[in-house]
Lab assay of single mutants.
Amino acid sequence: MQRVNMIMAESPGLITICLLGYLLSAECTVFLDHENANKILNRPKRYNSGKLEEFVQGNLERECMEEKCSFEEAREVFENTERTTEFWKQYVDGDQCESNPCLNGGSCKDDINSYECWCPFGFEGKNCELDVTCNIKNGRCEQFCKNSADNKVVCSCTEGYRLAENQKSCEPAVPFPCGRVSVSQTSKLTRAETVFPDVDYVNSTEAETILDNITQSTQSFNDFTRVVGGEDAKPGQFPWQVVLNGKVDAFCGGSIVNEKWIVTAAHCVETGVKITVVAGEHNIEETEHTEQKRNVIRIIPHHNYNAAINKYNHDIALLELDEPLVLNSYVTPICIADKEYTNIFLKFGSGYVSGWGRVFHKGRSALVLQYLRVPLVDRATCLRSTKFTIYNNMFCAGFHEGGRDSCQGDSGGPHVTEVEGTSFLTGIISWGEECAMKGKYGIYTKVSRYVNWIKEKTKLT
C-alpha cells in the first residue's frame, strides 16, 4: 500500500490518463441519441435557420407576430419608411378606419389613436360632414345658397324668414311668412316636400332668348283662358290664391305678392273693366268669414305684352289694390325667389296649380277651390304637342294621358313649387288646347323671366 501511494504521488498524470480511459469505455446513459432527441424537440425550422439574422431580410411573422416588435424591426421587413409607417399605425392600436367614419364618399386613412378623412370636392370637416359648395344638395341650405369668396357655403332665406341657429334652416321672422300653410287642420295635408338634388348652379339658368321682337298675326285659340281631375282644397291650404270678379264672377285667378299687390295673367284683364279681388276665398257660393274683398285701382301688364300681336306672350300683369290686405292664416303671400332659384325650383319637376275653373272641358265651374299636382314636361315634348308657338318664356306641365289639367277660369292662378315646406311661385296658368285632352298640356308663363320686374313694381313704400 505504501508503494502504491508513492507511485500516485510521483505520477499524477498517469492516474488522470487511467481515469479518462475508464470513462470513455463506459456506456453513456444520461444523453439520448440524435434521433430520439429530435422526437422530443420537434420544432419547425425557421426561415433563416442556421444563418445569422443580421444578414437576412426581415420576416413579418418572425419579427412582429411571434413577439412584439419595434418600429426598427418592422422597418427591416418593409425596407421602406412609408410602408412601415402605414403598417405601424394599425399594428400599434388597430384600424381606426374600420367603422368607416368618413361621410359623403370620403376616404379614410388610419393613424395612431386617430384617423384622417380625405374629402371629395365640396366637403370638409373631420368626417367630411361639412358642405362647402352650393353645387351639392344646395349646400344643405333649406332655401338659398351662395358661395363666399373663400368658396364656403353661405345660406340665406327669402323675405319674412331668418336663418336658424344651425345656419342652414329657415324659420319665420314674421307672423305670416310667405308660402307657408298655417291653418292647423290643413298642415297635415301639406304636399310632399321637395329635397334639393345635386345641381350645376353655374349652368342652372337656361341660355334662352326671349323672342321679344317676333311679330306674329293673332292666333285663334280655343278655350285658351284655361282644375280638371283635381281635388277639393281645404280652407287655408292655398292662402296665396285669390279669385278675380268682373263682368262675371271667378273669371280668373291670381296670387298675393304682398298686402297691396296681386300677380295674374295679362290676358285676364281689360282696361276700363272694374275688377274686384277676393282673398281668403274657399267656396265661392258661401260666406265663410275668411274672405277679404278689395278693388283694383291700377293694372300693370308687362311692358312687352301686346294682345294685338299675341294674347299669351309675356302673359303676366300686376294688380294694385285700393287697401292693403290683412295677412292671416287664410290670406298669405306666395314666396318669389330670384331668377336663378325660381328656375331651379321649376326644374324640380312638379308643381301645384289651383283655381275655381271648370271641372271638365266646357263644363261647370268649381264651387270649392280645386288643386292638382302636375309634372313638368320637357321642352321637346311640349313643342311636338301643339302647332302653336311655345315661346321661351312659357313652359308645359300636365299629363300625356289627359284627364287632369287646369281649365277655363283658372287662368292667372299660381303654379307653385314647394321647397322644404315653403311654396314659391314658378308659373302662372296661361293657356292650353281644350282641357285635359290626351297628348295636350297646360301652358304656363315662366315666372323666372319676370321676377325682377315683379319685385321692382310691387315694392311697398
Rank of each mutant, 00 (worst) to 15 (best):
residue 214 I to W: 06
residue 312 Y to S: 04
residue 79 E to D: 15
residue 351 G to R: 01
residue 394 M to G: 04
residue 273 V to I: 09
residue 191 R to H: 11
residue 246 G to P: 02
residue 29 T to V: 15
residue 361 H to F: 07
residue 326 V to W: 06
residue 71 F to N: 14
residue 275 I to Q: 03
residue 440 K to W: 03
residue 3 R to S: 12
residue 164 A to E: 06
residue 53 E to L: 06
residue 110 D to W: 15
residue 460 L to T: 05
residue 204 S to Y: 12
residue 307 A to L: 07
residue 431 W to E: 11
residue 329 S to G: 14
residue 146 K to A: 11
residue 40 I to F: 15
residue 298 R to K: 06
residue 248 V to I: 11
residue 386 T to Q: 09
residue 305 Y to Q: 02
residue 151 N to D: 10
residue 162 R to Y: 11
residue 237 Q to I: 07
residue 14 L to C: 07
residue 95 D to E: 10
residue 22 Y to D: 01
residue 353 V to Y: 04
residue 154 V to C: 05
residue 364 R to D: 13
residue 149 A to M: 09
residue 339 K to P: 15
residue 7 I to K: 15
residue 401 E to Y: 08
residue 368 V to L: 08
residue 113 N to I: 08
residue 200 D to A: 13
residue 452 N to L: 05
residue 103 L to Y: 11
residue 198 D to I: 12
residue 54 E to S: 11
residue 191 R to Q: 08
residue 414 P to M: 13
residue 442 G to C: 14
residue 142 E to H: 06
residue 9 A to T: 11
residue 113 N to H: 12
residue 49 S to V: 13
residue 35 E to G: 15
residue 444 Y to C: 03
residue 34 H to E: 08
residue 355 G to H: 12
residue 15 I to P: 04
residue 192 A to S: 09
residue 303 H to Q: 12
residue 128 C to K: 02
residue 185 Q to H: 14
residue 334 I to L: 06
residue 181 V to I: 11
residue 416 V to C: 06
residue 104 N to W: 03
residue 10 E to G: 15
residue 182 S to Y: 10
residue 390 I to H: 10
residue 352 Y to F: 15
residue 372 L to Y: 13
residue 379 R to Y: 14
residue 45 K to H: 08
residue 54 E to N: 06
residue 410 D to W: 13
residue 54 E to Q: 09
residue 398 G to C: 02
residue 281 E to H: 10
residue 21 G to H: 05
residue 387 K to S: 07
residue 447 V to N: 01
residue 396 C to F: 02
residue 165 E to S: 10
residue 461 T to N: 15
residue 409 G to S: 13
residue 243 V to Q: 07
residue 246 G to D: 02
residue 151 N to E: 10
residue 198 D to R: 11
residue 98 E to W: 08
residue 121 F to C: 04
residue 377 V to T: 06
residue 257 V to D: 00
residue 172 P to E: 05
residue 96 Q to F: 10
residue 267 H to S: 10
residue 281 E to Q: 12
residue 184 S to D: 13
residue 99 S to Y: 12
residue 65 M to Y: 15
residue 79 E to K: 15
residue 49 S to G: 14
residue 161 Y to V: 01
residue 93 D to S: 15
residue 103 L to T: 14
residue 86 E to M: 15
residue 125 G to V: 01
residue 97 C to H: 02
residue 365 S to E: 15
residue 97 C to P: 02
residue 241 Q to W: 09
residue 27 E to S: 14
residue 93 D to T: 15
residue 107 S to T: 11
residue 412 G to T: 14
residue 166 N to D: 09
residue 127 N to T: 12
residue 263 V to Y: 00
residue 79 E to Y: 09
residue 68 K to L: 06
residue 436 A to I: 14
residue 28 C to E: 03
residue 360 F to Y: 14
residue 383 L to N: 14
residue 380 A to R: 06
residue 364 R to Q: 08
residue 195 V to G: 12
residue 3 R to G: 10
residue 173 A to N: 09
residue 320 E to D: 01
residue 58 G to M: 08
residue 88 W to Y: 07
residue 118 W to V: 14
residue 314 H to P: 02
residue 458 T to A: 06
residue 150 D to V: 08
residue 285 E to N: 07
residue 278 V to D: 03
residue 374 V to M: 10
residue 326 V to A: 12
residue 11 S to K: 15
residue 66 E to S: 07
residue 335 C to E: 00
residue 126 K to E: 11
residue 316 I to T: 01
residue 263 V to N: 01
residue 171 E to Y: 09
residue 191 R to A: 13
residue 212 D to P: 08
residue 93 D to M: 12
residue 97 C to K: 02
residue 450 Y to W: 01
residue 417 T to S: 11
residue 225 T to R: 07
residue 265 A to E: 01
residue 38 N to F: 06
residue 354 S to R: 08
residue 230 G to I: 13
residue 455 K to T: 08
residue 294 R to S: 01
residue 362 K to A: 14
residue 421 G to Y: 04
residue 375 P to Q: 11
residue 37 A to H: 06
residue 199 V to G: 11
residue 209 T to Q: 11
residue 94 G to H: 10
residue 253 G to C: 11
residue 212 D to H: 10
residue 294 R to F: 01
residue 455 K to W: 05
residue 442 G to T: 11
residue 210 I to N: 05
residue 243 V to K: 09
residue 146 K to Q: 11
residue 94 G to E: 07
residue 43 R to G: 15
residue 50 G to R: 09
residue 354 S to F: 10
residue 418 E to A: 14
residue 156 S to T: 13
residue 393 N to M: 03
residue 15 I to Y: 05
residue 253 G to A: 13
residue 145 C to P: 00
residue 356 W to C: 03
residue 159 E to C: 03
residue 449 R to W: 11
residue 87 F to K: 14
residue 113 N to V: 10
residue 210 I to H: 09
residue 89 K to M: 06
residue 41 L to N: 15
residue 5 N to W: 10
residue 182 S to E: 07
residue 454 I to F: 00
residue 335 C to H: 01
residue 264 T to R: 01
residue 226 R to P: 08
residue 244 L to E: 00
residue 117 C to Y: 01
residue 155 C to Q: 00
residue 87 F to A: 13
residue 412 G to P: 11
residue 263 V to G: 01
residue 8 M to L: 10
residue 81 T to D: 12
residue 400 H to R: 12
residue 36 N to P: 15
residue 14 L to T: 04
residue 421 G to S: 05
residue 267 H to F: 01
residue 416 V to R: 02
residue 131 D to I: 06
residue 10 E to A: 14
residue 209 T to E: 12
residue 99 S to K: 15
residue 287 T to K: 06
residue 201 Y to Q: 11
residue 283 N to Y: 09
residue 222 N to L: 09
residue 190 T to P: 10
residue 225 T to F: 07
residue 219 Q to E: 10
residue 158 T to C: 05
residue 413 G to D: 06
residue 70 S to T: 10
residue 373 R to C: 04
residue 370 Q to E: 05
residue 270 E to L: 05
residue 383 L to F: 12
residue 297 I to Y: 04
residue 306 N to R: 10
residue 111 D to A: 13
residue 136 I to T: 04
residue 371 Y to H: 13
residue 317 A to V: 04
residue 333 P to W: 00
residue 96 Q to S: 15
residue 215 T to E: 06
residue 17 I to C: 05
residue 437 M to C: 07
residue 145 C to E: 02
residue 368 V to G: 11
residue 404 R to W: 15
residue 431 W to P: 07
residue 172 P to C: 03
residue 235 P to C: 03
residue 145 C to I: 00
residue 96 Q to I: 14
residue 73 E to M: 03
residue 391 Y to E: 14
residue 260 K to V: 03
residue 284 I to W: 09
residue 210 I to S: 13
residue 264 T to A: 06
residue 4 V to L: 13
residue 313 N to A: 13
residue 100 N to E: 08
residue 340 E to C: 03
residue 136 I to F: 13
residue 274 K to Q: 04
residue 67 E to V: 06
residue 233 A to R: 05
residue 400 H to P: 14
residue 216 Q to P: 13
residue 318 L to G: 01
residue 107 S to G: 10
residue 435 C to I: 03
residue 176 F to T: 07
residue 33 D to M: 10
residue 146 K to V: 08
residue 193 E to Y: 14
residue 266 A to H: 02
residue 460 L to V: 04
residue 55 F to V: 13
residue 458 T to N: 00
residue 290 T to V: 05
residue 26 A to R: 01
residue 141 C to F: 00
residue 143 Q to P: 00
residue 57 Q to G: 11
residue 267 H to G: 04
residue 350 S to H: 14
residue 160 G to E: 03
residue 253 G to M: 12
residue 272 G to F: 06
residue 341 Y to E: 06
residue 359 V to L: 13
residue 157 C to A: 01
residue 85 T to W: 06
residue 99 S to V: 14
residue 235 P to M: 08
residue 321 L to K: 00
residue 212 D to A: 07
residue 342 T to L: 04
residue 249 D to L: 02
residue 230 G to C: 12
residue 286 E to N: 09
residue 142 E to I: 04
residue 380 A to P: 12
residue 181 V to H: 08
residue 367 L to G: 13
residue 18 C to P: 02
residue 341 Y to Q: 15
residue 433 E to W: 05
residue 229 G to T: 06
residue 104 N to H: 15
residue 131 D to S: 12
residue 154 V to K: 12
residue 23 L to Q: 01
residue 104 N to L: 02
residue 172 P to D: 04
residue 447 V to A: 10
residue 222 N to M: 14
residue 450 Y to C: 02
residue 290 T to A: 05
residue 120 P to C: 04
residue 317 A to L: 03
residue 119 C to L: 00
residue 326 V to S: 15
residue 302 H to N: 04
residue 119 C to R: 02
residue 301 P to E: 07
residue 278 V to N: 04
residue 297 I to W: 03
residue 418 E to F: 09
residue 344 I to C: 05
residue 319 L to D: 01
residue 399 F to D: 11
residue 369 L to Y: 09
residue 440 K to C: 09
residue 304 N to Q: 14
residue 320 E to Y: 03
residue 425 L to G: 00
residue 59 N to L: 05
residue 341 Y to H: 06
residue 331 V to D: 01
